[in-house]
Design a protein around this nucleic acid. Structure first.
Length: 154
DNA sequence: GCCAACGTTGGC
DNA sequence: GCCAACGTTGGC
């Protein structure tokens, strides 16, 4: 079982929005970055855990946990001409963009802010604090995942 | 709103 | 296949 981190702008889709979805589940659509797509298409497996991260907001932070409930399938927004994620080069026979479905597990009582992680040497191996890390989906080393879970419970 | 750091596109 | 121009991300 692998841990991941998914970024989302809380104004667009927050951890609370996920908790309110039918079955508390959402297809992680709209990812249009090849590296992130490859993770969803090839590597993210059923039962993997996902740290939910709020980005582009006042206090960027890890705010909760989700779980993968469906593995790779095509992102339908790529075929929808009205969607802002429409991709004219994608066809149903040859989809370009894939996603996974995630289900709400919990919202943490405390937030683990980017600031806290940046100030803490134990998080040096956290991809999020590394320079120029703009990926919206990233694998989290097991050691770091344990750290996060310990720190968040305090 | 600024801007650094990427990623993508397209002409050559 | 190079690389300049452009677009996007996301912290600050």
């Amino acid at each position: 079982m692998q841990y991941w981190l998914f970024k989302s702008e809380p104004d667009t889709f927050s951890i609370d929005d996920l908790a309110k979805r039918p079955a508390q589940t959402e297809s992680w659509d709209g990812v249009r970055n090849y590296q992130a797509r490859n993770f969803m298409r090839d590597e993210i497996k059923l039962g993997d855990k996902v740290f939910f991260y709020h980005s582009s907001c006042k206090a960027p932070a890890i705010v909760g946990l989700a779980e993968v409930v469906k593995e790779s399938h095509p992102d339908l927004t790529q075929f929808d001409e009205k969607s802002k994620y429409y991709d004219p080069k994608a066809t149903k026979d040859n989809p370009r963009w894939f996603l996974v479905d995630v289900k709400f597990v919990e919202k943490f009582a405390n937030q683990l802010t980017l600031k806290m992680m940046k100030a803490d040497a134990r998080y040096s191996e956290m991809p999020l604090v590394k320079k120029g890390s703009r990926l919206s989906i990233m694998p989290i080393p097991n050691k770091i995942a344990k750290l996060i879970l310990e720190d968040i419970k305090d």
